[in-house]
Write a protein that binds this DNA or RNA. Structure first.
Lengths: 245, 245
DNA sequence: ACCTGAACACCGTTCAAGT
DNA sequence: ACCTGAACACCGTTCAAGT
């Protein structure tokens, strides 16, 4: 692909190609993703864009999953954290940050899906967590509740964004008909076998994603205060994590 | 899986191969998944197992995603719904059903990941929803709150299960080291730049998945009662759904 | 020592062609 | 009419070999 004998050396005025470095790979992924969607950014496609073979990428990133995590953290730089230090009620400012986080993820639901499996924990993620914890602290929430609530809030926002991953290349043609199908099922359910579903009917499906999201944050924040405290908090809880015992 | 009693010319004593029908395809997917994991069940692999070509499957299933949804609903038949009609406190019985749902999904986190994007809404899913709504009704929760809480509970359980999708063929080798890396990051964070993270330290990571899950259910149920009501509930809310307006 | 061509071992889905 | 072989258009990752 390089160096045709007859070609002049400045072959094309393409947008400046980043050097083959970790940063360049991440930047190119972001560009390609914005232009064509996450699902078009494959290792091979990325390599082509960088005028090399796919193997070369593995010098700088461990895997596709690791690249996704790095890209997500990059995007998280776009989350508006200014409400953390602004005036006003803490609850309101918390909501504004969480909404900003969610709207960033909404642009790339596939990335949200990755984030669910492999939490990023990069630079920007850490700043986001710090801002959220500061607000929960300001709200007077017990530290242990805040620690667990943090995960609940971020997981809820991330999962909500991930739900919108339909990998559609251009539009979302099945999303609408999916929802129509759901509405039909809910409407046509027998009141004899499913009385509670029938009674609620399409109220089960009511509300915009935004309303659902806002209510979810309300529920989590109110619930963290009113639910019994996290009851299994050993003094050194690091090693109590799950399946090994 | 039933033995064909006639068996005219038994060509090979293989485990009984289901006929090429929708049910047979789903059953074979479940078998293959249990034996080798979801990630090994590809359309090609499935076709091979059924002694045909991959194209033939598309006569019975629309796509891989649709097949996943069908298989998940099949698995949801294994959720224990008996607590719905049992004695005892509604809250406790609700928790038991939700835990059963989650543990079914925990066995196949990849399926949970699919479920997040494409809700199944098959026969068994509908029965699960009915059981949960019955208990929320028994608990005296307002219908509108119950409708929205239902989604929150199922989404939380599903997302929690999906988090454990690491597609590991045999073991989970990176999961443990991932967590170690996380612990290191949290421990090594600067108290100057990230005071709240530093103050909480590994308490951020405390608790087993089970404890987190149980607390999450507590938070959602308590929160649904204490949060302000869903405020955007038009009388006929079906058409108020989001992006079109 | 650092990088990469080529290969390995696959994918989901479609459609023209067979029976 | 119903089914499917073969093709289309790709994948992520590894490693022996080049520079």
């Amino acid at each position: 692909m390089t160096a045709h004998p007859t070609a002049p050396r400045s072959r094309r005025e393409r947008p400046a190609k980043p050097a083959l470095t970790r940063e360049g790979i991440i930047a190119t992924t972001v560009d390609l993703m914005r232009a064509e969607g996450l699902e078009r950014v494959t290792m091979r496609r990325l390599a082509k864009e960088l005028d090399t073979g796919p193997a070369s990428l593995y010098v700088y990133v461990r895997s596709m999953a690791e690249l996704h995590a790095a890209v997500l953290d990059e995007l998280l730089g776009g989350v508006d954290l200014t409400p953390a230090a602004a005036d006003g009620e803490w609850r309101d400012r918390l909501g504004r940050i969480l909404t900003s986080y969610t709207s960033v993820l909404f642009e790339y639901p596939g990335l949200a899906q990755s984030a669910l499996v492999a939490r990023p924990f990069g630079k920007h993620y850490l700043k986001l967590v710090e801002a959220l914890l500061a607000l929960l602290d300001e709200g007077g929430l017990e530290p242990d509740r805040a620690a667990w609530l943090l995960d609940l809030l971020l997981q809820f926002a991330t999962a909500t964004a991930a739900e919108h991953a339909h990998r559609a290349p251009g539009d979302a043609p099945q999303s609408e008909s999916d929802w129509q199908a759901l509405a039909t099922v809910v409407r046509d359910v027998s009141p004899r076998t499913h009385p509670h579903i029938a009674a609620l009917g399409t109220r089960l499906l009511s509300g915009s994603p935004q309303d659902r999201l806002a209510w979810g944050f309300d529920v989590l924040i109110a619930g963290a205060r009113h639910a019994p405290p996290p009851d299994v908090l050993a003094p050194s809880p690091v090693h109590t994590r799950g399946t090994e015992g």
